[in-house]
Amino acid sequence: MAAAIGAHAAQSLGRRVLVLTVDPAKRLATALGLDLNSSDERVVPLEHAKGTMAAAVIDSKKIFDEFIRSHAARSEVVERITRNRLYEQLSTTLSGSQEFTALERLLQAYESGKFDLIILDTPPTKHAMDFLTAPHRISALFQDSVMKWFMNPDAESKSFIAGLIGRGTRMALKSLEVLTGGAFIEELVDFFSAIRSIQKVLRERSERVLELLKSPRTSFVVVTSFDEAKLLEARYLQEELSHLRYHLKAVIINRAFPLGVPSDIQAVPEGMSPGSYVKVLNFHRLFREYHAIRYNLYEKFCRGLKSSIAVLRVPEYQVDVHGLSDLQELGKVLGGKEQGS
C-alpha cells in the first residue's frame, strides 16, 4: 500500500518520493528494484511519471553502527560500544531496534531535503504503537537522572537528596541483579556508560523525530480491512494517534468486495447448463449478502470518524498486487478516490 501511494504521488502529482520499508517480501523488493542485501536508495522506474520514486530497505544494524560512528567523539568509544554484547543483540536480532533505526532513517531522509514525500511503512497495529511511542521512550531513557546511575553505579552521592534517590535505585538494581545475574548487569552498565558520550545527540535526535511526527506536515494513514475486529483495531489506533497528537489523514480499507457484478439475474441464459449456473448464482447471492453485512460495519465505522479523515476503499483485485504495474494501478485507484472524498 505504501508503494502504491508512492507510485501515485510520483506519477500523477509529480512529487519526489521515497518509500522506506522495514522488511519487504522478495517479489515486491524485486518490483521496486531493491537489493535485499543493501539499504541504499534505489530509483524505481515509473512510466510517464512527472516525478520520481526511490525506495529503500531499512537495515537496522547498519543504521545503528553508522549512527554510533558519526556521533561518538573518539574511535575507542565506537569500539567499546560496538564490542558490547548487548549492543550487538540490540542492533541485530532484538526487537526494539527497528523502531529507533526506522525513525532515525526517516529523519535523515527528511533532513536531506531530497524528497517532497517520504512514506514509511510501519509494522502491523500491535507493533505500530511501540513504533510511534519509541521517541518518547528513548528520550525518557536518556534523561540525565537515569544516565547518571549507569555512568557510575557505585559512586556515593554527595548531596542528601541525591543520596536518597541513589539508595532506592541501588536497592532496585540489586534486586534486578538477583533476578538476572551479575553478568547481565555488568553488560548493561558497560553499555550505558559506553553510550554516555552520545547521550546528548541521542536525546536530541529522538526529540527531533517526535517534533517531525507531530508536525502538521506529517500525515498518518491507517490501512485496515473489511472486518469487524480489524475496524475496531483501526478505531483504537485512531484514538491513540490523536492522543499522541499525531495527524491521522486517511483510513484505507483493503480487500473490499469485487466490484461490477449485477444484482438482478433471473433467467438462465441460453446454452448454459442450468445446474451449474444456478449454483454460481446462489454462490453469488451468498457473496452479496456477506458483503452487505460487512458494508454496514464499514458505514458504522465511518460514522465514528472525524470528518477531516478521508476514507478510501480498495477493491479486491482479481490479480495480486505485487508488480510495479499493479502498484501503479492501485495508486491510481487511491488517487482517484482521494480526490473524490
Binding site: 554484547r85 548487548l86 550487538e88 543483540q89 538477583v178 533476578l179 538476572t180 545475574g181 551479575g182 553478568a183 547481565f184 553488560e187
Partner: peptide, 10 residues
C-alpha cells in the same frame, strides 16, 4: 550468547 553466566543466561 550475550550473558553466558547467571540466572539470565540459564
Amino acid at each position: 550468547e550475550a550473558v553466558k553466566i547467571g540466572p539470565m543466561g540459564a
